[in-house]
């Protein structure tokens, strides 16, 4: 029986992950046709409920839902009654009355999408909750990595940057781990928690580990009350992909990934974006296919 909700990677087993990844491929194939949409979710309503600002995830979900022929409504939280003090629970009751079949939620509180999922028969998709999870990002990352490394088990991915505040790091390392990829973290000591994954606080040391891909994270200034490192320039020179480091990455044929939005001059220099093994544009395109695969795979209990 198919799932109602898509809330995190932890609760998925390997078979489900592989199925979602395999299924994303035929969706990606649609993008090169002149007609990019299919009627699979014709007549269904997808509601976007974003309590936190987002451009790329929101538009990626919107494009994904529209390419499945669903109707998309964006619930404009900053201009809604939420600012007048309406609780999430009451907002969901209102949205229930609109008979949405799918609700895509982003919230600054970990666990809020799961709470909404218990309240509604609509399928709830977590588009990022606090520092907890960002499962569709993880899915698109795994899909992108699998395109360049079809045999994932045994491959090594180094996740660099602000691990502590990153739901992307959490979800993406979980999915890669489930797929047999070795994961290691690298970043300033203040931003890299001790986990079961290998931990580096020095870029050169991490490079000696021999990663197949380096996954850069955005430094999340908005989640840090007091700075965890002295300055952007300092961060760049110690943990950013500078021209020198790019040279080494390029010589060793390592792929570079980033969930976006990027901070030029902090986690990476401009030249990274022209690097032939930079997968950032593919990640954006694959995000739509991965989200179509998720939407298509869920079963709302609305009728």
């Amino acid at each position: 029986m198919a799932r109602k909700d898509f809330l995190d990677i932890v609760s998925l087993d390997r078979e489900e992950i592989i199925h979602l990844l395999d299924q994303a491929k035929p969706f990606k194939d649609l993008f090169t046709r002149s007609v990019k949409k299919v009627p699979a979710l014709n007549g269904k309503t997808v509601l976007m409920l974003f309590y936190e600002p987002s451009t790329r995830t929101l538009s990626s979900f919107e494009v994904a839902a529209k390419r499945l022929s669903a109707d998309v409504t964006i619930f404009d939280v900053p201009h809604s009654s939420v600012t007048k003090g309406e609780s999430v629970r009451d907002t969901i009751d209102t949205l229930q009355a609109m008979r949405a079949d799918y609700i895509v939620v982003r919230h600054r509180l970990s666990g809020q999408p799961a709470a909404i999922a218990r309240q509604t028969g609509a399928s709830v998709i977590n588009a990022g909750d606090g520092a907890h999870a960002h499962p569709t990002q993880a899915l698109l990352d795994a899909f992108t990595l699998r395109e360049v490394h079809p045999e994932l088990p045994g491959k090594k991915v180094l996740i660099m940057g602000d691990i502590l505040h990153s739901r992307v790091a959490r979800s993406t390392s979980t999915i890669l781990d489930k797929l047999g990829v070795e994961v290691a973290y690298c970043g300033p000591g203040s931003l890299v928690p001790h986990t079961r994954f290998k931990r580096f606080t020095n870029f050169d040391e991490a490079m000696r580990w021999g990663p197949d891909a380096v996954y850069l994270l955005r430094v999340q200034k908005e989640r840090q009350e007091a700075p965890f490192y002295p300055s952007d320039r300092e961060y760049h020179s110690v943990f950013g992909v500078t021209q020198e480091r790019l040279k080494r990455i390029s010589e060793e044929g390592i792929y570079v990934m980033h969930p976006g939005p990027i901070n030029r001059g902090v986690e990476l220099c401009d030249d990274v974006l022209d690097y032939e093994r930079c997968l950032i544009p593919q990640q954006v395109e694959n995000g739509i296919a991965a989200r179509m695969s998720v939407l298509y795979g869920l079963k709302p209990q609305t009728s």
């Binding site: 029986m1 198919a2 299924q23 035929p26 194939d29 299919v38 009627p39 699979a40 079963k299």
Partner: peptide, 17 residues
Amino acid sequence: LYRDDFEHLHENPKLQS
């Protein structure tokens, strides 16, 4: 993706290209 009985299936059909 073009079937008319999508809603009545318990498991979605396995997609291929």
